[in-house]
Amino acid sequence: MSNVRLIPRLNDVGVTRCLDDLDQLDEEHSELMDLERRRSEYEAWIWCAASGGSLSPELVDEIRVQLIAIAGQHGFPTPASDRQKAGFDVAAAKWLASHQQMHSPEFLRDDTWAFLSCIVLQEIVVWRYSARQHGRFAGGVRNTFQRLWIRGRTLDLGEAAREERWHLLESLSEDAMVQIFERASIASHPQLARAIAQGWVDTAERIGRGRMEDIMRRATKLLRLRNQIVDLTFLSPENLREEVERVFARSSEGIAEREDRVGSGQKTTVASWISRAIRRPKNVAALSGQ
């Protein structure tokens, strides 16, 4: 990657103004402003990095065109079902994560996403959530597109994984995504985030997706507790996987297996119980044995 494509940024005043206007609109049941109008209306709060890259209106246009097209495939502009929305999330995340020019630090900035959500793709946000959900317009981990971008980038298993490439992205529930990606201590380490995602997928297969919410909450807390004393990212991939498995096993203690499970999962359980057994007597000595 060479030259960074500079994307306009919308500062906080602009976001506030935009949200105020949206609130007004909603009450009056009137139309959203069109793109040109939004651009001029909030012009005063849109800014760009002064130097260091190339301004790229083309990239902004492309993001708009593509995401509107993806949304269109999932029902936009007619009101969408939860299933359609989830489908949009996955498809949009794939697209955002695979775009070469979006592997750029510009997209780690909240104000960049605020610009995209408030100005460029406002109608998609309103469609996907509502004009009232401010956090989906402002930049941050809950931003409509920012959260998809980081999910896609982190959970992308790479082209080498072929049809498995988006396995994690497609499998995780929204709640699991939130548990991972709204915890900066996890989200900032892609290998850790992927290991936890895999742990979720394995456990969900064992006990059923429907029962995962509490288990996931407890597992991420246990892992963060552990990460406070042991650098989990320093472990080899196998050891990290074992560690995550062990934590999921512990978090799901006492929860019955899914009855319709196929045999393969059984091994995981046994392994988890074994590692627990090893661990129990005295502080994880066995795990560090490499």
Binding site: Q228, I229, D231, F234, V284, Q290
Partner: peptide
Amino acid sequence: GSILSPNCVGSR
């Protein structure tokens, strides 16, 4: 090592 010695790889 002692009982208080760190013994997990990656201990901070």
